[in-house]
Structure formats: C-alpha cells, structure tokens
Simulated assay, not measured.
Amino acid sequence: MKSTQSGKATVFIVDDNPAVRDAIRWLVEQIGLNAKTFASARDFLTAFQPGMRGCLVLDIRMPGMSGIELQEKLSREQAHLPVIIVTGHGDVPVTVRAMKTGAFEFLQKPFNDQVLIDAIQAALGKYSAVWEQEDKRSQANRSLAALTRREREILELLRRGKPNKVIAAELDLSVRTVEGHRANITEKMGVKSLGQLIELLLKSDPDNVPN
C-alpha cells in the first residue's frame, strides 16, 4: 500500500451509531490500517484538511448533515478521498445520487466484513496513483520555488528545447554562465539530466509540454 502523509493509509469512519463505528474501526485495524472515527459529518468536516490521504467509510442517514451532503461537499472541494457508502436505508435514488457524486462503492447494511475490506483496499489502491501524482506536483513546485528569476528564465527556454548557445544569445549571457545556471537548476530540482528535468515537469504539470 502506498504511504500517505501520516505514513500509512487512514480510513475515516463517519457513522452516528457508536457500535457500527467501533466494529468498522476494529475491522480496519485488523488489516493494519489506521482508523479514525467520527459521530457526524460535521465532526469530520471540523477535522478535515485538503491534504488528507485515505478512504472515507460513510453512513448516509445521520442527524444534521447527511452522508450524501458530506460527499457532495467534498466533491465540490475536489478532495481526493474515495468514498464508500454503507447504509441500512439504501434505495435506488440514493444509490444513483451517491454514484453520480463519485462514490467508489455502495454497501447495504448488514454488510459482509470481507466485502468491506476488499472495497477499502481497492479504493486505496486506485487512489494511490492520484496521491503519487499530487506528491510529485508538490515536490516540483517546492523545487521551482527555490529557483532564482534567472534560473526560471533559463528553465523555460530549456523546456522549449533551446540549446545553451541560443539561450545565451537570447539572454545576453555567456554559454559558460548558462551552463552554470543549468547545473544549479538540475541540482535544485533533484535530477541529473535535462531529460529527467523535463520528465519531472511533465509529470508534475501536464501543461508543461515542450513547444
């Protein structure tokens, strides 16, 4: 399983029934994952942070904000948390609404323990690629922020496929100076070659396609 910000995937359990919360938490911990429980959608929102990594196991009918309303709010905020809906009151309209909002799975209570485990592991496995891409983008952004204005200018020209001599002429610099800046750029970006540098930019931001 891919690591998360806390070092291990976390399953967030939101259900107003304490017995259900405890049962799912115990089940999740038996397969070596972290688990955090919340008695209401509002409680979860209070603790929610955009960078959270893991899976949300969510009841539908709860006092105050419903599970569907919470799911829709997270969807509007583009939170990359797969949602598994578990409910004892599921019907076709609710299922359709949850799926349209992007629910990963919809399970009817009482559910089979192994079915829930399989759903959680499938959700975490699928979203690990999304989180990995986010991590690469964040790392690239941090590295880019460390570049000087001149280094960013040279990086942009390198990204466009311009050789050192052309860059030197355009910026009124010596070729040796351009080479020095280029060495600094690759060191700050944590790469060893221009090819790796372009690959990092492409992976972190699809819009960074060389012209």
Rank of each mutant, 00 (worst) to 15 (best):
Q108G: 14
F111T: 15
F104D: 00
R142D: 11
L147A: 02
F106C: 15
P163W: 07
K109Q: 14
Q114W: 06
I117M: 06
E105K: 12
V178R: 07
I167H: 02
Q108I: 14
L107T: 05
F104V: 00
R149A: 08
L147G: 04
K109C: 15
G90P: 06
R152H: 09
A103N: 01
F104Y: 06
L107V: 07
A145K: 15
V86L: 05
I84P: 10
Q114P: 04
R149H: 08
L144T: 10
R159A: 11
G88A: 15
F104N: 00
V130M: 01
R142T: 10
E72G: 00
R159F: 01
G54D: 12
I167K: 03
Q133R: 10
V57K: 02
G161F: 03
I120C: 11
L144W: 03
A119H: 05
M62S: 02
I84K: 05
C55W: 03
A140W: 13
V83Q: 03
K73L: 13
E72S: 04
E170F: 07
K126H: 13
K136G: 01
V115G: 11
W131A: 02
E134I: 09
H89R: 06
D91R: 12
L157I: 05
I167L: 02
S128T: 05
A145Q: 07
L81G: 04
L107S: 05
I60D: 14
Q121E: 12
D172C: 06
P50N: 03
L158G: 14
Q71D: 00
G67V: 11
D118C: 03
T87W: 11
T95I: 13
L74C: 03
A123S: 05
G67S: 12
Q139Y: 14
M52N: 07
K100W: 05
E132M: 12
F104P: 00
P82H: 00
A119F: 01
G88T: 06
A129E: 03
V96D: 06
L147N: 05
C55E: 04
L147S: 01
G67A: 11
L74S: 08
S128K: 12
A140T: 13
P63D: 12
T186R: 14
R76F: 04
K188E: 09
G90K: 01
I85F: 03
T148G: 02
L116A: 08
A122S: 15
M99W: 05
P63G: 13
R152V: 03
L155T: 06
A168G: 04
R142F: 07
M189H: 10
L155E: 13
M189A: 10
R182T: 11
P63F: 08
V86C: 14
A169V: 05
N184H: 10
A145N: 10
L70D: 05
M65Q: 15
K73W: 15
R97M: 12
L81Q: 11
K165H: 04
H89Y: 13
G90T: 06
E105L: 08
R61F: 08
D59V: 01
D59Y: 12
I154H: 07
Q108E: 15
E151W: 13
I167T: 07
P82K: 00
L124H: 02
G180N: 14
